[in-house]
Structure formats: C-alpha cells, structure tokens
C-alpha cells in the first residue's frame, strides 16, 4: 500500500528524527512510503487564527500532493485532525477541490491510530528500557480518539514501564500561537504538566505531538530538569531516540 507521509512543518524544521522514526515504522511494516517534497504546512495556524481562506488554500495544495496515496499518515494528532476533521468543514460545496479535500480527509490517519487500526501491528522495531509517562495531546485525544493506540504500541516494548501521570489528558498549554501570545498562562499550564510528570516517577515523557513536546521540554529544562527525556512516540517505537541520521 502507498502511504503518504505528511511530516508536519514542525517536525521538518525542529526535529527531523521524528520523521525518520515514522519512516522506519512504516517501512518496517512493508508500506511503500511517499514523502512529497513540496509539502509544507497544513494551515492550522491560519485556521485557528480565524483565517479560513488561507487554510482552504493549503488544504487544496495538500490534497493535490497526496492525491495518489492510499493513506496519509501524520505523526501529530493536531495536524492529522486538522486534515481529517477540520478540512471538510472548510468546504461546503461540491466542487472538484472540495471533493479532493474530503477524500484526503477520509484517508488521513494519526500515526499510532494508523499503526494499530489500519496496519494492525503486533510488533514494533524499537527497543526502549525505562519508565515512561504518556501525555495525551488534546486534538488527537478528543478529535480523533487517540487514547489506547499509543498505549497498546508501548505495551509491545517489553522493557517499557508505563507510569501514568495524574491529569494525563489535561492540556500542556501549547495551543500553537497561544504559547507565545499568552506565554504566562501557557507556562503555568506547562508547569502543572511538569509537576505531574515528576510525580509519576517516570524518567521520560512521551507524546504524539511535537508542539506539546517542545513546550514540555522547554519548561522542564528551564526549571532545571535536564534529565527527564522528552520523546515522540514514533522515536520510542522505532528505537531512534533523538538521533539524526546522516548528520
């Protein structure tokens, strides 16, 4: 099956290792992975700022780029949800682009959801030893129902001990531009998250969205915690934690 990988602009720019880990997971599962080179951003920043016209343009662009894929996989709950849930709401007509966008939405999946519910993976290539706590990112959790999928995948790693934190479903305070516009509030929310991570007894926190990870890691480091690892679920599952190949 031809699987299009939509990296998300954040992974492309900030942490390519997540992209390579995702690639490895899909390729190990015998997917033919396409990574369209012209891909950029899903338009979520514009959409959440109320600029629907801009988001629409990017939706059409994305639909064209991934037109020949059976599935589109995104290592991010919020970008996957942007495509799967919110794109269709931007198009109410029955034009050719609208139909393309709706078709794209229907075959787009968040990574862990895809691995569990479409590929029905029984094993993952990675190995990880340690105590992990999983933070449920908001959009993936509430808009796509991503809850058990990452936990089921983590359970395939024999040396992982999952230590659930209190309020694992509470927002970490990222919220895209919110993190900059309302920095004080965002920081306090991140602080609460860090407290719960520390209380869980885990020495690494894992999530499915790089935005949350940057926010949580940023706060952990600022309060002097250089030890707790902050990892994307793909990195853990693929066994490629933070290493960038070909460097």
């Amino acid at each position: 099956m031809r699987v299009g990988l939509f990296l998300t602009c954040l992974v492309d720019l900030m942490r390519p290792s997540i992209g390579f880990a995702t690639l490895k997971l899909l390729e190990t599962a015998a997917c033919e992975v396409i990574v369209p080179e012209a891909q950029t951003c899903c338009g979520q920043p514009s959409y959440n700022a109320g600029d629907y016209a801009a988001a629409r343009e990017l939706a059409i662009k994305l639909a064209l780029e991934f037109a020949d894929c059976d599935y589109v996989v995104v290592p991010s709950g919020s970008c996957a949800s942007m495509i799967r849930v919110h794109y269709p709401s931007l198009f109410t007509d029955d034009s050719e682009p609208a139909r393309r966008v709706r078709a794209l939405a229907a075959r787009t999946y968040e990574l862990t959801d895809f691995l569990v519910n479409v590929l029905k993976l029984q094993t993952v290539p990675g190995h990880y030893q340690g105590r992990l706590s999983y933070h449920d990112s908001c959009s993936g959790l509430r808009e796509l129902g991503v809850k058990q999928q990452p936990r089921a995948l983590l359970a395939m790693l024999p040396d992982v001990e999952l230590k659930e934190m209190n309020q694992c479903e509470t927002c970490c305070g990222f919220g895209g531009t919110f993190a900059v516009k309302f920095g004080d509030i965002s920081t306090q929310m991140a602080d609460n998250k860090c407290r719960n991570i520390h209380a869980s007894g885990a020495n690494a926190v894992v999530a499915g969205d790089l935005g949350c990870l940057l926010n949580i890691e940023g706060r952990l480091r600022r309060i002097g915690d250089a030890a707790t690892r902050v990892l994307h679920i793909a990195e853990v599952l693929a066994g490629e934690q933070g290493e960038v190949p070909c460097k």
Partner: peptide, 18 residues
C-alpha cells in the same frame, strides 16, 4: 518572548528533514 520568558526553546537540529 512570550515563549522564552518561562520556557527554553529546544533548538532545531541544524538541518531540516527535507
């Protein structure tokens, strides 16, 4: 500043995925 006032920003890897 809204970000970095209360948090560090993890640095990018130096090269993009692309």
């Amino acid at each position: 500043g809204g970000w970095t006032h209360g948090r560090d920003l993890p640095a990018p890897a130096g090269k993009t995925f692309r």
